[in-house]
């Protein structure tokens, strides 16, 4: 079993917070996330603004070996998309 921990730097603004001038800060949060290894979908999520800033996702996956590459991809409420890759390491 492989522990996969992903941390994404993102403000996850809820839309109900105010700035120092008392103005509402617009909502801006990650909406969708997926983790894949080649063609295999490992994990998918729909997130709302109730997920904490700089989201941390920790999941547990079978059938991966050291050296396998996984791809994390996400999209936010502004339609911005990002992705990153990492390799499974033996500890």
């Amino acid at each position: 079993m492989v522990d996969v921990r992903v941390q994404i730097r993102h403000p996850m603004e809820s839309g109900s917070r105010k700035d120092e001038a008392g103005e509402l800060i617009p909502a801006w949060y990650i909406t969708r996330f997926s983790l894949t290894a080649g063609d295999r979908l490992l994990f998918a999520a729909q997130l709302g603004p109730g997920v904490a800033r700089d989201p941390l996702l920790h999941i547990r996956v079978d059938g991966l070996a050291a050296g396998d590459e996984v791809l994390a991809a996400w999209e936010d409420s502004r339609g911005e998309t990002q992705s990153d890759r990492a390799r499974v390491e033996a500890l």
């Binding site: 921990r5 941390q7 994404i8 991966l64 070996a65 990153d84 990492a86």
Partner: peptide
Amino acid sequence: RRRLLTALR
């Protein structure tokens, strides 16, 4: 256990 730690910025 094999473990993967990804720190995505």
